[in-house]
Design a protein around this nucleic acid. Structure first.
Length: 276
DNA sequence: CCGGGCCTGCGG
DNA sequence: CCGCAGGCCCGG
């Protein structure tokens, strides 16, 4: 499910309900989703801590916790494919695949729900959290990235653009849907060697990254099957996709039929007519 | 670089 | 039954 725009939307929808609230109880139904530390320590450390603010880095959602007890900790979630973080009342019975329930002292419940159980939760001190989660290895945020910065990332790389966009060590937050949408918007073929782009093409790519991600955030993300925001609402951006999932449909720009290929092991949608 | 593994569910 | 799915890590 969630790529940068979806995680950003979850952050925005959860934020007003969680800011300043204290974790009063944590129930873990499936300990394997807690990647660090172990479930018992996770509960012990988190209980009683208030949320200072929410943040996002790439596809990671970060809860900055107050340093009321000793040191500042961060709770971090990565939803991977089918993870959801949703506000709920004290719903009984729980929705299927609910693995963790957090209770807050304003009576709000936060549910971690994940059909495929790829998603992970982490809790660590501020100074450890980057290493523990892998956030330390992330590339820069694509939103607000300059043409120069993107040019530097592409320079000398022989990898196809599609794979470059998906590599979280180079750019943080772009996934399969938005990689295809960005390359369509830029009029660039997903198989193009990144290092072969001229200045004008880099500029188009940089503009497309901003445009596609900003539009997706404005539309509260893309819902194909699983994704919902923190309030349980689906996004609307699926209505505006021009490439992803549109195999065999006419291109909105040139009318040729869109194709699907496998690139870097991922299904890739593009227009053979106008993506060069 | 590819393929497999992690998991479950859905649609053809 | 098989293939496929918004991610990511690992080993060959």
């Amino acid at each position: 499910m969630p790529e940068l725009p979806e995680v950003e939307t979850v952050k925005r929808t959860l934020s007003p309900h969680l800011m300043g609230q204290k974790f009063t109880e944590i129930k873990i139904y499936h300990p394997a989703v807690i990647a660090y530390p172990d479930a018992a320590a996770f509960v012990k450390i988190l209980t009683g801590r208030p949320v200072r603010s929410l943040d996002r880095r790439g596809k990671y959602l970060i809860f900055n916790l107050d340093e009321n007890l000793d040191e500042a900790y961060c709770l971090v979630g990565h939803l991977r494919m089918t993870g959801r973080l949703i506000l709920a009342g004290d719903a009984v019975p729980l929705a299927p695949h609910t693995h963790v329930v957090f209770s807050l002292d304003n009576g709000v419940y936060l549910h971690w729900v994940d059909v495929r159980r790829f998603g992970r939760l982490y809790l660590a001190r501020e100074e450890e959290i980057m290493a523990v989660t892998g956030m330390a290895k992330l590339g820069p945020e694509p939103l607000g990235m300059s043409v120069e910065a993107l040019a530097a990332i592409c320079a000398g790389r022989r990898r196809p653009l599609k794979q470059l966009l998906l590599d979280q060590h180079l750019l943080a937050g772009i996934g399969n849907i938005y990689a295809d949408e960005i390359l369509f918007e830029a009029g660039l073929h997903p198989g193009r060697e990144a290092g072969s782009l001229n200045r004008m093409e880099i500029e188009r790519l940089q503009k497309a990254v901003q445009q596609v991600l900003r539009q997706a955030i404005a539309n509260q993300g893309t819902t194909f099957r699983d994704y919902v925001d923190g309030s349980g609402r689906p996004g609307k951006n699926q209505e505006y996709l021009k490439a992803y999932g549109r195999t065999g449909k006419p291109c909105s720009r040139c009318g040729q039929l869109l194709e699907r290929v496998i690139l870097g092991g991922r299904s890739t949608h593009f227009c053979p007519g106008c993506q060069k």
